[in-house]
């Protein structure tokens, strides 16, 4: 077991390194000059050159990538200029390991940008996750139990409809009508628990989380429903019912257990993806999470932030995959030899 985990971790690290390399190549082999964009509109050629040097874009992509990896392991300083360090140390920014880069646009390390945005995305992800898991399983079971009735059809159809509407339409609808036009809730703006207490935190997260949950719920409703239906035809369920056990306990003790493993797998991967920020939902509600950070970095052409985020979000997915694989291995020992 230990060996398996180590091997998976090793592969994960290799994967991350390769991914960061591919990312650098993708961004730097494109025929556009980041320095020019960073320098602004009224820039002379000389000024562009200066900017290029200050930003380190004059080095080859491969060198920049090596510098990046080194930064992740041991940290680095920006700009890397020994004479400047002596003459004007206040101009040097330290970026401690794990250094994901330094945003010249915002003049902070990418890590601190992420540190600021992450709680927002995490809060959203957690609340949305709870909503869709509880809602999805509940409605899935109800649909399965009432199979073939209007309730079943209604639940399945509605969840599919919410899934099929573009997320930003749902989000904007909730924002513009529920919050602004009808004034049923305040216009959401992220407040930490420290600022607004649990109540303030929850109420501000409600609409954006609901937007996400409505999108994700459909899959869980269908999956739960399918598993419950399938397992209800299994022999052991029939046996349990024949023994005279009531429908409720059978449903939850026997049926759900079978459905739980795939649900948890799916939920784990969805959750990991969402932790990396819900780009559209965060943009619609103006929540400064990782997703909004991506959009803002893209608008201002903040390359270090974009690259740092790609690598970080990739890491989330890879780690989530490892966790899921290891869990599988725990559940089913045969996987380990595969």
């Amino acid at each position: 077991m230990f060996a398996y985990v180590v091997r998976r971790l090793f592969i994960g690290v290799i994967l991350l390194i390769v991914m960061s390399l591919v990312t650098f190549m993708l961004f730097f082999l494109m025929p556009q000059d980041p320095a020019r964009v960073a320098c602004g509109k009224n820039c002379s050629i000389a000024q562009i050159k200066q900017t290029e040097k200050a930003l380190g874009y004059d080095k080859p992509a491969l060198t920049q990538w090596v510098d990046f990896l080194q930064g992740v392991v041991v940290g680095r300083e920006y700009p890397e200029d020994k004479t400047l360090r002596e003459k004007a140390p206040e101009l040097i920014s330290d970026c401690a390991a794990p250094c994901l880069g330094y945003s010249r646009v915002n003049q902070v390390t990418v890590a601190s940008e992420i540190k600021e945005a992450f709680p927002v995305s995490l809060s959203l992800a957690v609340l949305a996750f709870l909503m869709w898991i509880i809602g999805g399983v509940l409605f899935g079971v109800i649909a399965a139990v009432t199979k073939g009735t209007v309730i079943d059809r209604g639940i399945v159809a509605l969840s599919l409809v919410f899934y099929a509407f573009p997320t930003f339409f749902i989000g904007l609808f909730l924002l513009k009508f529920i919050a602004i036009k009808w004034g049923l809730v305040d216009v959401p703006s992220y407040t930490t628990i420290a600022e607004g207490g649990i109540g303030g935190w929850l109420s501000n997260l409600f609409l954006p989380s609901l937007t996400l949950a409505l999108f994700f719920m459909a899959g869980y409703v269908r999956m739960t429903r399918a598993f419950v239906l399938e397992s209800m035809t299994e022999d052991y369920i029939r046996t349990a019912r024949a023994k005279g056990l009531k429908r409720g306990p059978v449903l939850f003790k026997h049926t759900m257990r079978a459905a739980l493993t795939p649900l948890v797998t799916m939920a784990g991967l969805d959750f990991a993806g969402l932790m990396g920020g819900a780009i559209i939902t965060e943009s619609v509600f103006n929540f400064n999470g990782l997703g909004k950070l991506v959009v803002d970095a893209n608008v201002s052409y903040d390359l270090p932030t974009l690259i740092g985020l790609v690598v970080l979000l990739g890491a989330f997915v890879i780690v989530a995959n490892i966790i899921v694989d290891v869990l599988y291995a725990v559940i089913d020992p045969r996987v380990r030899v595969a």
Binding site: L16, M19, V22, T23, G273, I279, V294, V310, G314, N321
Partner: peptide, 9 residues
């Protein structure tokens, strides 16, 4: 492992 929407954007 690449975040797809992020990359597209």
């Amino acid at each position: 492992s690449f975040p797809q929407t992020l990359m597209l954007l």
